[in-house]
Design a protein around this nucleic acid. Sequence first.
DNA 1: ATAAACCCTACCACGATGGAAAGGTCAAGC
DNA 2: GCTTGACCTTTCCATCGTGGTAGGGTTTAT
Lengths: 133, 133
Amino acid sequence: MNIGDAARASGVSAKMIRHYERIGLIRTSSRTQAGYRQYHERDVHLLRFIRRARDLGFSLDQIGQLLSLWDDPGRASADVKRLAEAHIADLDARITALTEMRTTLTTLAQACHGDHRPDCPILQGLATPPPAS
Amino acid sequence: MNIGDAARASGVSAKMIRHYERIGLIRTSSRTQAGYRQYHERDVHLLRFIRRARDLGFSLDQIGQLLSLWDDPGRASADVKRLAEAHIADLDARITALTEMRTTLTTLAQACHGDHRPDCPILQGLATPPPAS
DNA sequence: ATAAACCCTACCACGATGGAAAGGTCAAGC
DNA sequence: GCTTGACCTTTCCATCGTGGTAGGGTTTAT
């Protein structure tokens, strides 16, 4: 299987497969005499794992750790859970930050009549110190 | 006022002030004979505006547009509101995406007993196709 | 006079991904 | 057998916002 087939089968672009190889996230594949990378079904499994972990927002570094645990039959599920919960905490922080932005901005936007006149609470809100929270 | 004072007064790092100048977000400041950038209170106002807009998650490109409107006494508040609402929609999309990740991951993590045993629904979830939603 | 604190420019780095350039390879059709 | 198109290869550059570092000049206070 060439890299394009592995890409289509896994949902990871050929570009990224090469990248993951170069940064050591996945092992170097075998090559044909012409230098084409060769992949097998198990490689596609691995790439799909990575793709799903990316879809859940794990960083490539975290995915490296997940892959180590995946490979390790003697792993403790506690280690996996710890990684996951750390990531959940990170997601929570990001959601909180974005939600706060959204709340503030929505308040400003609601106060803006949004017509042809120039006066605008949004610009005023940006130009003056936020109320002490 | 030197760049360090402007940075402290505005909450924008000196590094970023220089960067904003280079990308054309703010005008080039006057310089002393030694080449030191000189700032005034109105520059600090401007930088604070940028800082608050960044805190609300606007991109530098969007901030450029906001600054144009801020400068324009003949602006229509509708233009500002449109920018803000586009950004709110963007925030919503990101919040939704992160929340979906969080939901999926939390479900997996809850199913994981998190002890010394190796079997782990989190890894299983990453290794097998997500259930068709 | 010297030291500390400041300023300057010009680089490089992150993280994950895409794009483009410039070239080699393979398979199908003529 | 040759051409064409689809594939593969590597290498470099770009994104976005920010931080760091190196190597140098300036100002201010002791």
